[in-house]
């Protein structure tokens, strides 16, 4: 009886998927189409675009009009992209290193304590990103916490130059996105059958072997999800590079932001955002093709 009632209420698939499709259409497809269209138009001198076709924005990525107006091969933007990708990859690796042990420990706790520990991981996330990043300025600058303590302990004689380095950017990024890594790994580990770990120990697997041959493969789906969720926002970040890196080098995020503000070149900003999106999709696609897909459990 229950079964037939369920069938009565069931909607045809195309209709039941309607709300999801509408959300995707309005919040994903439509904005992307606008960005794509803008990237192929001419820049309005006062910001915005003029309705005229131009592929100049894409040409600019590889070819720069030199000071005399000729087209010449130019690596500036490629270098900016490469730097951003490297930094995002490093931030992701750092997050993974910090988040896996944390998630592993939490998943191994009695259930009543896990909730509290997870809450503690997410609490910093309630504060504004700008505020959290600025706190790192207070820690890392010459007269900041780190240098004050180190010199009080007599470890250093003069302040270490911690601020305005790639390391400072990395610390800020990894700190900002740590929960994005810890939560999916925890979710994956929590679902696994911990008897497998016990069995491994019973069969004389060492601590490292248990970790790398049992726990890590079981958490693979969570690790993959976490990596994607940290890598992508790190790639577009501009607050940490500007505040902690001293704005000395452009990142993709700051490049795009610049085009929409003082450089008033919306088409180039849109094109940069689009190239970034394409690059991310390409990396993901290659990764999924290499077999990540079968093993990743989302």
């Amino acid at each position: 009886m229950t079964e037939s009632r369920f069938i009565n209420f069931a909607l045809p698939p195309w209709l039941s998927a309607g709300p999801a499709m509408a959300v995707l259409l309005f919040f994903l497809a439509a904005p992307l189409c606008i960005v794509a269209a803008y990237s192929l138009m001419e820049a309005d001198p006062h910001g915005g675009v003029r309705a005229a076709f131009s592929s100049e924005a894409y040409v600019r990525f590889l070819f720069e009009r030199d000071w005399d107006g000729n087209l010449a091969l130019d690596g500036s933007y490629a270098a900016i992209f490469a730097r951003s990708f490297l930094l995002a990859a490093a931030a992701t690796a750092l997050c993974l290193l910090a988040a896996f042990p944390a998630a592993y420990c939490i998943a191994g706790q009695p259930p009543e304590r896990r909730g509290l520990l997870l809450l503690l991981i997410t609490i910093p996330f309630w504060a504004n990103l700008l505020v959290r990043t600025y706190c790192w300025v207070l820690i890392l600058r010459d007269s900041g916490l780190a240098n004050t303590w180190l010199s009080a302990l007599g470890v250093i004689a003069s302040p270490l130059p911690l601020m305005y380095t790639d390391g400072a950017i990395l610390a800020g990024l990894a700190y900002s996105y740590l929960p994005f890594m810890a939560l999916p790994i925890y979710a994956a580990l929590e679902k696994t059958d911990w008897r497998l770990m016990e069995a491994a120990r019973d069969l004389y697997a060492g601590w490292w072997q248990t970790l790398f041959r049992i726990a890590v493969p079981l958490a693979r789906g969570g690790i993959a999800a976490g990596c994607i969720m940290v890598f992508i926002p790190s790639l577009g970040a501009f607050i940490a590079p500007d505040l902690l890196g001293g704005g000395r080098k452009l990142m993709i995020g700051s490049l795009i932001q610049l085009q929409f503000s003082s450089s008033r070149n919306w088409p180039f900003g849109s094109a940069a955002a689009f190239v970034l999106l394409a690059a991310v999709l390409l990396v993901l696609w290659l990764w999924l093709r290499r077999g990540g897909a079968q093993k990743a459990q989302w």
């Binding site: 820049a43 001198p45 720069e64 000071w67 500036s76 933007y77 270098a79 900016i80 704005g247 000395r248 080098k249 452009l250 490049l255 610049l258 085009q259 003082s262 450089s263 008033r264 070149n265």
Partner: peptide
């Protein structure tokens, strides 16, 4: 500034910070 002047500024800025 004119569009041309802003484009030159952007070029200078990118070269400083590339």
């Amino acid at each position: 500034c004119s569009q041309q002047a802003i484009a030159l500024q952007d070029k200078v800025w990118t070269e400083i910070k590339k």
